[in-house]
Design a protein around this nucleic acid. Structure first.
Length: 549
RNA sequence: GGCCGCGUACCAAAGUGGACGAAUGGAGCGGAUUGCAAAUCCGUUUGCGCAAGCACUCGUCGGUUCGAAUCCGACCGCGGCCUCCA
């Protein structure tokens, strides 16, 4: 029996659970965002887009949510969706949360410096590759562009409300406040020599540690063999203790360390930033407010929290521990609290059957693909169409399939007329889509239902278009900008193909040959173009559409 | 070694006890259209058979059940995490 209200597989309980926000008319949602020392790749975007589809569905009139008292809430509903920008550079060799190796921001700087020298930076880029803040802003800007291009509602909303995408470097005061709370309440401790002191979170102080990932402290201790250097272990009470702050005056990004007399500058560990940004934006408190923020009982601070599957451990495990101990200290000692009620973790994306990696050459960023002429709508559909809890397989064939589906839907959508009333949720298509999405956000099933419905259509009416658009408000595909190709007198060049005098001449010769019914010549020219990697298609009006093979 | 997830037809991908030879998209095949293509539209695709029907399918082998792709066990294969990574 499919649920009639939104149910999701909660990583915390490993079960399908009703999603029951504290206030169903205003849902709080936090997604772990990008690190900005490189462009986000399509795997990153699969995770962000899954969260976006979920957010759109929760906001849609099609979504029903069960409330704590068992009644059903049908809306209207808004989602306050926050995604952080990790612009603190963490370490390449990040064994314990940021102590060794080289700072990633510094590595990015070297890469940018080389790009600058070889003239590979986009025109108009003024950037000092030695300044980590400029590097971070450079990639952050590109991330926002990509996210908007792919229809991430959050990024669109953040244009007018920047607090929805907070930066780690602008949340340092909150971090030190929370760390001081943890120190005061005995959940954290300091160790090390002046100049290189560290603050660790003590995992043994929180009995709930391990609940999300299924790891036990004993197993973590046993599995630790050889992977963690002796140096990092000394001073730790337990091998799984993680870094909250590191005093290091030589770091390229550093801030005051208000943890006692004589502390120099330092930088935060990589788990604490999410706790602080989520709490301040979603609980609505400033840095000072974090000093007293307290939740009754073991209540969750936020309704929904997402991140890639690799975030489950250690990142989200640590986030839960430190957040519960900081904000629910009266119950944290019992191991209670979950900080977020529902944990949503999309699985990894493969490319042509293999794990994506730079060395295998199957590594793509969203902007690379779009520069090659891939329509953003096709890319978005390809990245969302597989169920979020399966490893999706990204293929060029799949991208073509998605592009075709988008075209078919666009044709129906073009029947829309202004003023057509929104379809009722009882509309067969909308009801079928709602059933699919209520059931653990089954996007594949929803798309199948949509296609099945389109197959029953004759000439689409305005009402059909309105129904389709109601579904697309969730999928977010048709609203995306369409790349425009270039047109000449004779050719329509698809995105990614640029006209050249050579091609233009061939098209002209072919047109003349066809006019003279010299089909041998016209076919020969088509073969020649094919050999150049171009496909052609005679369009109405005598023009020829030129695409890439 | 520990924890978690996955394995479906030519490909991608839903389905998680009966309506399943298995949704949906692609590819293939047949047809419409086109000078021919491409695109689009319609039909169709396990085997044998004209058909009714029979036989064999959802990693493998067993089990539970009147009934299993779906539940249980073992095994094989793949992936994630246990070091940064969506």
């Amino acid at each position: 029996m499919p649920p009639t209200f939104l149910s999701l597989n909660n990583t915390l309980s490993k079960q399908l659970e009703a999603f029951t926000p504290r206030d169903p008319s205003r849902v709080t949602f936090y997604s772990c965002g990008p690190t900005v020392y490189d462009d986000a790749h399509i795997g990153n975007f699969r995770s962000f887009l899954a969260a976006d589809v979920l957010r759109r569905f929760i906001e849609s009139p099609l979504c029903t949510v069960r409330t704590a008292d068992g009644s059903l809430h049908r809306g209207p509903r808004t989602v306050v969706h926050v995604m952080n920008i990790t612009d603190v550079g963490h370490m390449t060799d990040d064994a314990e949360g940021g102590e060794n190796g080289e700072d990633r921001m510094a590595v990015a700087g070297r890469r940018l410096e080389e790009a600058k020298k070889s003239g590979k930076l986009p025109a108009g880029t003024t950037l000092d590759p030695r300044d980590p803040y400029q590097i971070a802003r450079f990639y952050e800007h590109r991330f926002r562009e990509d996210a908007i291009m792919l229809g991430l509602k959050l990024a669109i909303a953040a244009q007018s409300d920047p607090t929805l995408m907070p930066r780690a470097t602008e949340s340092i005061a909150g971090m030190t406040t929370v760390i001081n709370r943890l120190l005061k309440d005995g959940y954290a401790y300091t160790t090390g020599q002046p100049g290189s002191r560290v603050v660790y979170f003590s995992v043994q102080a929180y009995p709930g540690y391990g609940k999300l990932s299924g790891n036990t402290l004993a197993a973590l201790k046993a599995g630790e063999g050889g992977r963690v250097s002796e140096e990092n272990q000394s001073g730790k009470k337990h091998p799984a203790d993680f870094l909250l702050w590191k005093e290091d005056n030589s770091h390229i990004m550093k801030w005051d360390s208000p943890f006692g007399d004589g502390w120099g500058k330092g930088y935060p560990g990589w788990h604490i930033e999410c706790t602080v940004m989520a709490a301040s934006r979603l609980a609505g408190v400033d840095a000072a407010g974090l000093a007293t923020l307290s939740l009754p009982g073991a209540e969750a601070l936020i309704d929904l929290h997402s991140g890639g599957e690799d975030n489950i451990f250690p990142h989200h495990e640590c986030e839960i521990a430190q957040s519960c101990c900081a904000f629910n200290p009266q119950v944290a000692h019992s191991g209670q609290g979950s900080y977020a009620a529902m944990w949503f973790h999309p699985r990894f994306l493969f490319v042509e059957g293999a794990k994506m990696s730079k060395s295998k050459g199957n590594f793509f960023t969203a902007r690379q693909l779009v520069e090659k002429g891939i329509q953003p709508a096709a890319l978005r559909l390809e990245l969302i169409r597989t169920h979020y809890r399966s490893n999706a397989n990204f293929t060029m064939q799949g991208l073509e399939d998605s592009a075709r589906m988008v075209e078919r839907w666009r044709k129906i959508a073009s029947a829309a007329t202004p003023g057509t009333p929104a379809p009722s949720p009882e509309h067969p298509l909308l009801a079928a889509v709602a059933d699919a999405l209520h059931n653990d956000l089954n996007v594949s099933e929803a798309i199948a239902q949509l296609n099945r419905w389109t197959n029953t259509l004759g000439t689409p009416t305005a009402a059909d278009a309105a129904a389709l658009l109601a579904v697309d408000a969730i999928l977010g595909v048709l609203e995306l900008k369409q790349l425009q190709g270039q047109t000449s007198e004779i050719g329509i060049y698809l995105p990614g193909v640029s006209p050249s005098p050579e091609v233009e001449a061939k098209l002209r010769t072919r047109a003349e040959a066809r006019k003279a019914k010299d089909f041998a010549t016209s076919d020969r020219i088509r073969d020649e173009l094919l050999a150049m990697g171009l496909t052609i298609k005679d369009a109405p009006g005598g023009k020829v559409e030129v695409g890439k093979k």
